[in-house]
Every structure is written in C-alpha cells, then in structure tokens.
C-alpha cells in the first residue's frame, strides 16, 4: 500500500486522489487561535462562574491560585480580541477595499439568505423522513449559525468583559446598573458559548456520523473530492461549472500534519468535553 493512501483522512477516501482546498492557511490559524483561547477562557472562566462548586478551587489552585486564573483569562481575552479585530479587518478589506465578490452576499458568503431558511426546514424534514436531504453550498446554515454565534458572542462577551476590567472607565458613559448587568451578560453568554461549542458544535461538525470522529478539514485545509461532493454538492457543481476545479486543487495532507492535527484536535475535544461535564455538574448540583 502506498504511503499516500495511509495519509488519507478516514472519511471520503479519494478514489482519484484529488484534494480540494476549503480553508486557507490564515483561516486555519484563525481557528487554532480561536479554539485555544476559547478553551483557555472557558477553563479559567468556569471556576469563576461556579466558584462555589467543589472543583472550582481545585482548578484554580491547579493553575496557581486565583491571581493566575484571572491573568490567564485576561491574556486569552486579549489574544482573542486581536484575532477578532484582524478577522474583521480582513473581511472588510476583502469585501470593500478589494471588492472581492461573495463576501457579503452570494453562495460563498457567511451572511444568511433565504436558502438557509429553506435548508433549515428541509433538513429537518429529512431528519423526520419527510423529504430529500437539502443540497448545501459552501457554508451550510448551521455553519453560518456557528460563525454568527461566535461573532455575536465575541462582541457581547468581549464588551462586557472589558467593561468589568475597566469598570471605572466604562462607568463614565454607562449607567450604574449596567455595571451589574455586564457580569450577568458576560457569565450567561459565556456559559451559552461553552455549552454550545462543547456540545452542539462538537457534534454538528466533528462527532456526527459523516465526520466522526473529527472533521480534519479545519486543520489540513483540504478535503477529498468524495467528501466535498457528499457534503456540499452545490458548491462542488458550481466549482465544476465555473471551471475553477483546477485552481482549487490542493495537495494530500502529509502524514505528520494529519497526526499533529489529530493530537491537537482530540486534545481540544477532550478538554472541551471535560469542561462540559464540570459545567453540567455545577449547574445541576
């Protein structure tokens, strides 16, 4: 068996060995920064949110007491803020400055359209065996929801977090009760993000049967032709009809990258699930 076959992802074996690029290197780095800082923020935020729970003090002591936890939380927050600002800058640079098509509307846009509403209902009809499976474009409705949930979440959590961090400054233009509200907003929205990412996002993107145990495309950037065709038939056909298949061809991911991605990905999923269990024990205690 040739080495190249060993290196193929579990799902969608490439019969003809063709791989197509789905995410650029920058997008993959952005996801890596996003999930590492998010794990860091969750791991340091949860002990604060559930400071009375049995594991909170142990976890805090584990990272060097509360001063350390707050320091890590703020450190991750700054890194994530910078990543967020870079992303927003890129989106506007590509969409407005370079006039790139498909950023704000069209089949490749993250902005939700009427098709997403139809796909949502169509998908659910398919769940119940009442209709055919919808054909998805570049970003399916749940992926757009993930994106906008994170986008909204970062604005809300970030703003409320900085409002607490620099409370006397924010107090100059916020009413007094807002200082109370920001903690409620920060912790509830953070909790929603944690519960959503560690359960819904994990299952929707990685653990569902079509991708199980992990969708490697966010790590390798490429996916096999079969997987591409199966998961996003509309985008695949559009690519062929627009004659862009050649320009989107990628190389098969090397074995080291696959193995590295697996270690990182499984670690992230494991930490996330562990934090989810802790959250649930604290919430329903």
């Amino acid at each position: 068996m040739p080495d190249s076959e060993l290196a193929e992802p579990k799902t969608g074996t490439a019969a003809n060995g063709r791989y197509f690029v789905r995410f650029t290197r920058n997008q993959r780095y952005m996801h890596a920064v996003l999930f590492t800082t998010f794990l860091g923020l969750a791991a340091t935020g949860l002990p604060m949110r559930f400071s009375e729970s049995f594991w909170a003090r142990k976890l805090a002591a584990g990272v060097g007491g509360f001063g350390a936890i707050l320091f890590f939380h703020k450190f991750c927050a700054i890194v994530l803020t910078v990543a967020f600002l870079i992303h927003v800058k890129e989106v506007f640079q590509r969409g407005l400055f370079h006039r790139e098509k498909g950023i704000f509307w069209g089949p490749t846009s993250m902005v939700a359209g009427w098709k997403d509403v139809k796909d949502l209902f169509g998908h659910m009809r398919w769940f119940l065996g009442l209709g055919p499976k919808p054909q998805f474009e570049r970003y399916a409705y749940w992926e757009k929801f993930d994106y906008w949930a994170v986008f909204w979440g970062m604005v809300v959590i970030g703003f409320s977090g900085y409002a607490m961090w620099f409370a006397p400054f924010f107090a100059r233009f916020l009413p007094g009760w807002a200082l109370n509200a920001v903690l409620v907003i920060h912790s509830e929205e953070g909790l929603l993000a944690i519960l959503f990412i560690f359960s819904i996002h994990f299952v929707n993107t990685h653990l569902r049967p079509d991708s199980f145990p992990m969708d490697m495309v966010i790590f390798t950037g490429v996916e096999s032709e079969e997987e591409f065709k199966l998961k996003r038939p509309l985008e695949y056909r559009r690519m062929l009809s627009e004659g862009k298949a050649e320009s989107r061809l990628g190389i098969a991911p090397p074995l080291w990258l696959l193995n590295f991605s697996k270690v990182v990905g499984y670690t992230a999923i494991f930490i996330g699930l562990a934090l989810l269990v802790l959250t649930l024990t604290a919430y329903f205690h």
Binding site: M124, W126, F127, A149, V184, E189, L195, I200, N204, R208
Partner: peptide
C-alpha cells in the same frame, strides 16, 4: 440572557439529536 440560552440550546439539542439519528 436565560431565554436566549435556553432557546438556543433547546432548539439545537433537538435538531442535532434528530440529525445524529437520521445520518446514522
């Protein structure tokens, strides 16, 4: 915030469970 949290999670837990069963 609570309604948002409960609403989003309730919808997606049902959605994703059905999806899991159907794809399997």
């Amino acid at each position: 915030m609570n309604l948002l949290l409960i609403g989003v999670l309730t919808f997606f837990v049902i959605h994703t469970l059905l999806w899991l069963i159907r794809s399997r």
